[in-house]
Every structure is written in C-alpha cells, then in structure tokens.
Amino acid sequence: MLNYIIRRVGYLFVTLIFVMVIGFVIIELPPGSYLEFELQRIRLLGGDLSQAQIKALEIQYGVNDPIYLKFWKWISRFVTGDFGESFEYNMPARTLVFARLPFTIIISVLTLIFSWTVSIVVGVYSATHRRTALDYTITVFQFIGLSVPAFLLALVVMVFAQRTLGLHVGGLYSDQFVNAPWSWDKFVDLLKHIWIPIVVIGAHNTAWLSRVMRSNLLDVLGMQYVQTARSKGLLERRVIWKHAVRNALHPLVMVLGMSLPAIISGETVVAIVLNLPTTGPLYFRALLQQDMYLAASFLVFLAITLLIGNLLADILLAWLDPRIRFE
C-alpha cells in the first residue's frame, strides 16, 4: 500500500511539471508581453520612456530571452511563491489566488460530498426498485439534471428565489457579514447561503453519478456472489449494502477523477452568476483582460487541487478494492 502511494505521488510530480509547462504556454500564447503592458500603462499615465530605457527594461524583464530561459525564470520564481503581478489589480497574483482558492476548495469538497451521498442513496433506490413509478421519476430528473447547464440552473434558482420567495440568494454571506470578522453568527450565515451553490453545482454531477451508481449496482446485483450472499440467509438489506453496494462503489470512485474536474469547472462558471468570492469570476475576468500571470496562477492552482484530489481518489480506490492494492 505504501509503495502504491509513493508511486502515485511520483506520478503527481511528473504531471505537475507538465501542468506548469501548460501554465507557461498560456502566459506566452497571447500576443504582447508583460513589458508592453507596463509601457502602455506608463504612457497612459503621461510618462514617456526613451529607447535606451526600454532596452534596459527589456533586459530586466528578459523579453528577448530564449523561451526555455523564460520558462526557467518563471518556474523558479513560482516555486518560491512569486507568481508574478496582476496588471489589473496591481498586486501580487499570489495574494489574489490565496484569497480565493480556499472557497473554491471548500465549495467543491462539500459539493462532492453532497452529490456522492445523494447519488448513492438515489442510485441504490432506483436499482433495487427498478421499473417503479419513483424509478421513472428519478430517471426524468436525472435526464433534466444532465441537460441543464449549471449557470442556467443558478439563474433559474436565483430568479425563483427572488421572485417567489423574495430572497436575495447571491454570495456566501448576507450584506452585514461580508466584511465582518469570523464569528458564530457569520458561520451560521455562511451555512444559510452555501447550500445553494452546492445544490446548483452538484446537480449535474449528482444526476450523472446516480445513473452510474444505478447501472453499476444493477450489474453487481446480477453477479453470482450476490446470489451466494442470499443463499447464506442474509437479510436482503445486508445483501444489498454489504455485498452489492461495496462492489458497485469502486467504479464510482474511479469516475471521481472525472467528476472532480467537472465540479471545479461548474463551480468557476456558477460563481459568476451566484456572485461567489471564489476563483471563477476573477479567473475568467483575468482571461478576458489578458491579465496572464494571474490567469496562469489560477489555472495551475486549480490543476494542483485536482491532482491532489485524484491522488486521494486513487488511495481511496486502493483501500476499497484489494485487487488494485496488490497489483
């Protein structure tokens, strides 16, 4: 087991290097450079620079350096915690990333827990009550959940809440708590708000996972060992939960690697509509404004979050399925 984990961590670092390369490419892809942006800003402020001054700045920023040297400079600064400057906000990208990332992680993890719990319960129910009215109803909701883009669902929920309930549901806190220091009241207020993004972001994933769970469980229920369990005289409930569900779960853990990126994706987009203080709104704005150091930092950190999530999923899978552990 320990060997397995060490090997996975090794993979993680290899992947991480490539993630950094892609992050770097993203910075370099758009036409124009950091320096040009700076010059524009200075000119805008009314200043002017001589050719020699520009030359000096070019050397300082390494504009004409070969690409590998640029990469090396960027990555060596990155690992020391210097992610570059955000032009738009005129502050280190690091400050902005670390202010926003925790909320993305918290919401994503909560969404994951929510959608797993619901999809296991719903999946088990609909697999064991196949072709009943409730199973068909669940199927209808699953199809709808799979077809509605999360941001649209967010819009509909907000409009509904505002129009029929008269509630303002955007954000994570009520107005009076936004800038307040942490307190029990603020925490309760957070709980009152956070379930909406969780349900909205999780809807798609829940619909998908519960379908996966249903079909996995149906497969497993047809397995010989389920019949063996029944032939022991076990309670049907125990046959389902101990013998069938346990085996239906590991394909679900395997798709965890796919549902995590989907959740983070959904979170970033939904955050714009729901006005959440997470990475999404800032990241997409940075892309639109070509604020590339900020955008790249966000992207790299989203990827790192995912990589760690996948590592945990792999470990969970190995724990669940002895065949992988002894591979």
Partner: peptide, 24 residues
C-alpha cells in the same frame, strides 16, 4: 496515458477558456 492524465488534470471549462482567450 501520461498525456491524457495531464489533460485530465485540468478542470475542463477553465482550460477551454484559457485556450480560447489565447485566440487572436
């Protein structure tokens, strides 16, 4: 397998967005 793993290690929409933002 590694290439796929690397692509899969990005959240989809943000990666799409980054690539789209790089278009002229």
């Amino acid at each position: 397998q590694r290439v796929i793993e690397i692509i899969a290690s990005f959240p989809t929409v943000p990666l799409w967005a980054a690539l789209a933002a790089a278009l002229p």
